[in-house]
Simulated scan of single mutants.
Amino acid sequence: MEIVSINVGLPQTIMYQGKELVTGIYKYPVSSSLRVSKTQLDGDGQADLTLHGGTDKALCVYPEEHYAHWEQVLAQKLEAGTFGENLTVRGLLEDQVCIGDIYAIDDVIVQVSQPRQPCHKLAKRLDWGDAVLQVQETGYTGYYLRVLTEGVISKNAEVKLIVRDEAGVTVAYANQIKYHEKANIEAAQQIAAIQALSASWKQSFLKRLAELGA
């Protein structure tokens, strides 16, 4: 389990179909080590703080293993950071990582908080109208980390699992229930009960359960 690339970028204004769009999805690899706080890496930023950033989404992670698939779909070479992730990683796929898992990255301690939910800005960055749907369908979403202990992350850092969450709910399973098994009450209850789950995803599952009469 290792970091392939550390990527940061500040919000910028782009033109898309004749309209201005402010977005922080443009992240680019850096060669230096960077300090990470409870909310973000140094030199990084988000445009819409109602949906991005904050303690539950301090770091966005995306597995390098998915890039080959998307390069084939889009018929183009994609560099690390294309999916707006801060950390491009290897050996930490969605079906291997559980919500609530705690990892050490150098002296930084992080915890998996939720799957990454793709937004329309990814579609606009790549001029790829089906981006959100395809990311959801494949389950190649990536995920977010909250920072439990601040520190410095280096590009060559190893990622070590410290604690496996007792619920054992993988990011892949949470995605499956979120997008494909929307009437699965038992699974929704299990996910909503995970203490480490982000506030926004917990609220989403509780709302679904209320609508299902559970």
Rank of each mutant, 00 (worst) to 15 (best):
M1V: 13
M1L: 12
I3H: 03
V4F: 05
N7Q: 15
L10D: 00
Q12G: 12
I14K: 05
M15S: 15
Q17V: 05
Q17N: 13
G18C: 12
E20I: 01
V22K: 15
T23C: 06
G24W: 00
G24I: 04
P29H: 04
S33G: 13
L34C: 10
L34S: 09
R35F: 12
S37L: 07
S37G: 12
K38T: 10
T39M: 09
D44G: 14
D44T: 09
D44S: 10
Q46W: 12
Q46S: 07
A47V: 10
A47C: 13
G53K: 05
T55F: 10
D56G: 11
A58S: 07
A58K: 03
C60L: 14
C60M: 12
Y62L: 07
P63K: 07
E65S: 15
Y67M: 09
W70T: 12
E71F: 10
E71T: 10
E71C: 07
E71Q: 15
Q72K: 15
L74Q: 05
Q76W: 02
E79K: 15
E79G: 09
E79D: 12
E79H: 09
A80C: 07
T82L: 05
F83T: 08
N86Q: 05
L87W: 04
L87Y: 02
G91V: 08
G91P: 07
L93D: 10
D95K: 11
Q96W: 04
V97A: 10
V97R: 04
Y103N: 01
I105D: 05
I105M: 13
D106G: 15
V108N: 07
V112Q: 05
V112T: 14
Q114I: 01
P115Q: 09
R116K: 14
R116I: 06
A123W: 00
R125V: 01
D127M: 01
A131I: 00
A131V: 05
A131M: 04
V132T: 13
V135N: 00
Q136L: 07
Y140D: 12
G142Y: 04
Y143D: 02
Y144R: 05
R146F: 02
R146Y: 06
L148A: 01
L148G: 00
T149A: 08
E150R: 03
I153S: 06
S154W: 09
S154P: 07
A157M: 03
L161K: 11
V163Q: 11
E166M: 06
E166G: 00
E166I: 13
G168T: 05
G168E: 11
V169W: 12
T170M: 06
A172E: 13
A174R: 06
N175R: 08
Q176W: 13
I177K: 03
K178T: 15
K178N: 14
E181A: 13
K182D: 02
A183P: 01
I185L: 06
E186H: 08
A188P: 00
Q189N: 12
Q189L: 11
I194S: 02
Q195K: 13
L197M: 03
S198E: 06
S200R: 09
W201I: 02
K202P: 03
F205L: 12
F205T: 05
K207W: 08
L209Q: 04
L209F: 14
A210K: 15
A210I: 01
E211P: 00
E211D: 14
A214G: 15
